[in-house]
């Protein structure tokens, strides 16, 4: 039997008895980052394949969300900083070892690119927009001409962004629930899946909805597979890892994990999408909404639960 107590009355607010430095804004930031990456990857692929007319939601409508999502995400991140006025210090150096640093730089590059992306076609959707200055019109046609180049640039950048949302957490070996190599690919998959769901939500074309439903089914299956893989990895790990995963399996977060994430966020939308493809009359909106909510819940779950886990000594 081992008992441990602090006799000096240690009191570090937000650390004792439980670390709570990263709260909801960070979960939201990770979710929106993944969503933005997912949407832009699909949009770029559609453009590279010259299928813009067949997939109007993926190519044009949904990417409008991206700059908005990124800006809200960045504001959420800044909101969570405790020394906010110094946020510019992020851009005085690049530190490859620090995911927070290169993530901030990748976002700095993707944000203007995503705005350019939308800028290049927004007049096709809203013809009444008037740029006023001829230079802006010239700039618009310049971007249009180089759109494929932009797409080729965006795909790798967005893959990095999607993986970054996981690596930001997995880089900490002090929090065993975060410290696994699957989290990067897992959050990227989840980001792609929420991206596909958003495209379904904004699509009016039956053909497009169906194709993205199929893509989403595949992504959800991969995501479930990766989650099982992660859980199994924990059970094969050290005591700290086994303790960490038990918080999801039979601890404070198991309801959220099994019922909300696995059930409502993954399995139910998966079944609904499969039934729909089999010809049963179903709404495609509901599973898409569930996937989006599930994606956010997943980030909240990992951020909150991960901070409760630690290496015992």
């Amino acid at each position: 039997m081992k008992e441990e107590l602090f006799i000096s009355g240690r009191h570090l607010e937000k650390i004792d008895p439980h670390l709570e430095i990263w709260e909801f804004p960070i979960s939201l930031y990770l979710f929106l980052g993944g969503l933005a990456a997912g949407i832009l990857i699909f949009s770029s692929i559609v453009v590279l394949l010259n299928k813009e007319d067949k997939f109007p939601s993926a190519a044009r409508w949904t990417p409008i969300l991206v700059p908005i999502a990124i800006v809200i995400g960045l504001l959420a991140l800044i909101f969570d900083l405790s020394h906010k006025l110094y946020v510019w210090q992020l851009y005085t150096t690049i530190r490859i070892e620090s995911p927070m640093s290169w993530g901030a730089w990748v976002l700095l590059i993707i944000t203007p690119l995503s705005i350019l992306w939308v800028f290049s076609y927004i007049r096709e959707l809203f013809p009444r927009i008037d740029w006023k200055f001829s230079i802006l019109y010239r700039f618009e046609s310049f971007i249009k001409e180089h759109k494929k180049f932009l797409a080729t640039l965006l795909i790798p950048l967005c893959i990095i962004l999607g993986i970054y949302t996981g690596i930001l957490l997995s880089a900490f070996n002090s929090r065993p629930l975060w410290n696994n190599a699957i989290l990067g690919p897992l959050f990227l998959t989840s980001g792609l899946s929420t991206g596909a769901a958003a495209i379904i939500l904004f699509s009016k074309s039956q053909y497009e909805k169906h194709l993205f439903s199929k893509i989403d089914i595949l992504l959800i299956i991969i995501e479930i597979g990766l989650i099982i893989h992660m859980v199994m990895g924990y059970y094969a790990g050290s005591e700290a890892h086994i303790n960490a995963i038990s918080i999801l399996m039979n601890g404070d977060f198991s309801f959220m994990f099994f019922v909300i994430l696995m059930g409502l966020g993954l399995i139910v939308p998966l079944l609904l999408e499969v039934f729909e493809l089999l010809g049963l009359k179903m709404s495609v909106i509901l599973p898409a909404l569930l996937v989006l909510i599930g994606g956010l819940v997943f980030r909240i779950l990992m951020v909150e639960a991960g901070q409760l886990t630690r290496i015992l000594y």
Binding site: L12, W22, S82, H83, Y86, S98, S174
Partner: peptide, 29 residues
Amino acid sequence: TGNECIGCGACIESCPYDARYQHPEEGYV
């Protein structure tokens, strides 16, 4: 260095010994 710190908390999360805190008035770690 207080005036280079943005208070992101990454270092707090990364310390296995929970040795750091955000200064309640100043904001830096």
